[in-house]
Structure formats: C-alpha cells, structure tokens
C-alpha cells in the first residue's frame, strides 16, 4: 500500500546514497548563524548560539540534544513560528519569516484539538486555508496509518500512539515537502514508540519528504536518521554531525547489533565529554 502521489524510486536511491561517496543531494533548508535569546523577567535566556546547519533535500535529519538545549527553539524558527535574534533560515531561496505551506510541524504531544473529532481535526489545515478538504487523500492516509474507521472518535477516546498517528496524517494531508517533528514520540511507551518509528520510516521512504526530527533518545536518532546533528547544552550549538549509513529499511532488531551499539556509545561519549568539559570550565 503506497501513499498517494508517490514515486517508487525512494528505496533503491536511498540505499545507494547512504553508501556515501556520491555528491550530497541539494540543500532544502539552510540555517545560517542562527541565534536566539528570549527576554524574560530575570534577563535574557540565550537559547541558540550561532547554529549553522543544512537540511538536505529528501533526507532524514535527526537533531539530538539534552533537555533545554534549544531544539524546540530551533524547530520553531524553522517553522517560521518565531523570529531569530540574528542569522537566517531559508527554504530554497525563500527567507523563512512566517509559516510556510511547504513546511508542516508535528508537535510533542499530538496536539489534537479536544473539541473536534478525528475527521474534523485532520480537516483543520484545509479549513484554515479556506479550501475544501482533500477527502480522498485523507482517507488513504488514514488507512495507511491504520486509523480508518476512527473518524468520528474524539482525541480522548484514542491512545497516545493513535493520536500521534492522527497528527501525522493531519500534517501530511496538505502535502508539505518538509516535516518538522518535535520529539513526537517522547511521551509514548517503548513498544508504541518502536511501532511509530517503523511507521515514520516507512512513510518517509514512501513520500520522499524532507524530515527534521528532534529527539533526546540517541538510539531513536540513529535508528531513524541519515544524519544525526548533536547539539550541545545551552546555549545550543551544533557540536557534531554523524552520518548514519545503515541500509534501509531498518528493522527494530538492529538496535541490538554491535555496530548500532557502537554508534550509540560513540555519540554518548561525545555528549558526555562535552558536558564534562563544560563542568570543568564552570
């Protein structure tokens, strides 16, 4: 079962790409010297410091970092939801200063509107754009994520995983080319989380969307990503970028393989080393 409007190229192309050596695909979003501080009563909070990062066309980029390092801040800036203090974010040759129809955001808890049933929740983006909902596409998407038949249920009647699947459908229904995901599965139990990780991998392979996925789970990042960008603690900056050339589709089992565990430990020690240095200085 394939998603509507999808070419079948994805898989082979990606496995060959991930063996490296080929020139990198074109840049989809470019973040240049992005800094942001929040003004609060107790003074300015410096959340992002001079972040530069490329999100490549069609890649699965994971942004990994400790709590409070500015991941959400970065993602909101990429979504055009708030302005940077300095620096720039571009999509193609457009400057991102406001929400862009090409970019859809998926929030931590599914962020469904509790007063609307599933169907009405998913039609929200169309309603806001004053367009008739693309019912056919929505039905296919719902079927794809296993939510067909739940259209009349309210969010409180759905499990956490189902709610998050609904929110993914809501974002995909308007066919954006970039998906920004902010710890979407952070609140789910381990089993549901594995299930959702597999689903999002499948969806990505089928749709060729560009995905920037924030998480603070190292193994989730490695499992999903083409590249993992590790952020340092506040003020957030990009500390390191790792290429993850594990062939796809990846199964949950790979997480127990020595190569996978080695990658986890690598990143972990890099993060802890960074922390240790900070502690030593301060």
């Amino acid at each position: 079962m394939k998603l509507p409007g999808i070419a079948d190229v994805a898989q082979t192309e990606r496995t060959s790409k991930s063996t490296g050596l080929h020139s990198a695909p074109p840049v989809k979003m470019a973040i240049r010297n992005a800094s942001k501080s929040y003004d609060t009563r107790s003074g300015a909070v410096h959340a992002l410091a001079d972040v530069s990062l490329d999100v490549r066309e069609g890649e699965f980029l994971c942004i990994l970092g400790p709590s409070g390092c500015g991941k959400t801040t970065l993602l909101w800036s990429m979504a055009g939801l708030h302005a940077l203090s300095s620096g720039s974010i571009t999509l193609g040759n457009q400057q991102i200063t406001r929400p862009n129809p090409e970019i859809a955001m998926i929030f931590q808890d599914a962020n469904l509107l509790p007063w609307r049933n599933l169907a009405k929740n998913i039609e929200l983006p169309f309603e806001l754009k004053r367009k008739p909902p693309d019912r056919e596409r929505i039905a296919k998407l719902l079927d794809r994520v296993g939510l067909a038949g739940f259209e009349n249920k309210f969010p409180r009647e759905l499990s956490g995983g189902m709610q998050q699947r609904a929110s993914i459908v809501r974002s995909l229904s308007v066919d954006p080319s970039v998906l920004l995901m902010d710890e979407p599965f952070g609140a789910l139990d381990a089993f549901t989380r594995d299930e959702m990780n597999l689903l999002i991998q499948e969806i990505w392979m089928e749709t060729k969307k560009t995905i920037a996925f924030v998480t603070h789970s190292i193994s989730e990042a490695i499992f999903l990503a083409d590249r993992v960008a590790v952020m340092s603690a506040r003020p957030g900056r990009i500390a390191e970028i790792y290429d993850i050339d594990i062939p796809r589709p990846r199964s949950i089992d790979i997480q127990t393989e020595p190569d996978f565990i080695k990658r986890v430990l690598d990143i972990k020690s890099r993060i802890e080393h960074g922390r240790g240095a900070r502690v030593a200085i301060t």
Binding site: A79, P99, A104, M105, N111, L113, L128, K129
Partner: peptide, 10 residues
Amino acid sequence: AKIALARSFG
C-alpha cells in the same frame, strides 16, 4: 501549542 499549531497552518 494549539495556537502555534493553527499558525503553522497559516
């Protein structure tokens, strides 16, 4: 978050 959601859809 709900307001941000609506804004992200324009």
